[in-house]
């Protein structure tokens, strides 16, 4: 019984995976065909340098970089989870008591206060 139920659910999801696999198997031959009919001239090492608008590339491709907006990435980690939590409330709200909305409003208030504080902090570039 349970196995059959699980199987039914999994068979629904397997269609998504099959679509993924079909798209890859349908488009990979284009790459193979391109490999077969395109010209191959390996006489020029400059051709395989990274593209830098005609200049000879300088330094590494992957360098240290300024995470100027790192604060937003940190906030994303918190508020993305919050947004998905709200879905579990929203999809069952028709079966809930009306009073059950109040704790959610309080939860939203707490999250909003935290978000305002985080946005205020994200403007202070010198602490990052």
């Amino acid at each position: 019984m349970l196995a059959a139920l699980v199987g039914e659910i999994v068979s629904n999801y397997s269609n998504v995976l099959m679509m993924f696999g079909f798209a890859i198997t349908a488009t990979a031959p284009a790459l193979l065909l391109s490999k077969m009919i395109s010209p191959k001239k390996r006489n020029n090492p400059v051709k395989f340098l990274p593209m830098e608008c005609g200049q000879v590339p300088k330094g590494e491709g992957r360098t240290h970089f300024m995470m100027q907006y790192y604060a937003y990435v940190l906030m994303f980690v918190v508020f993305d989870v919050m947004a998905i939590f709200l879905y579990s409330w929203g999809s069952t709200i028709l079966n809930l008591e009306r009073t059950a909305t109040l704790p959610i409003i309080i939860f939203l208030g707490i999250m909003f206060a935290a978000m305002a504080f985080a946005l205020y902090q994200s403007k202070r570039r010198n602490i990052w």
Partner: peptide, 22 residues
């Protein structure tokens, strides 16, 4: 597009670079 040569930078991480469009 299909008749053009595919040029991959020499220092690229080739397996991931190939599979990303797919």
């Amino acid at each position: 597009l299909i008749s053009k040569e595919i040029i991959i930078p020499a220092k690229a991480d080739k397996p991931i670079f190939w599979i990303a469009p797919l």
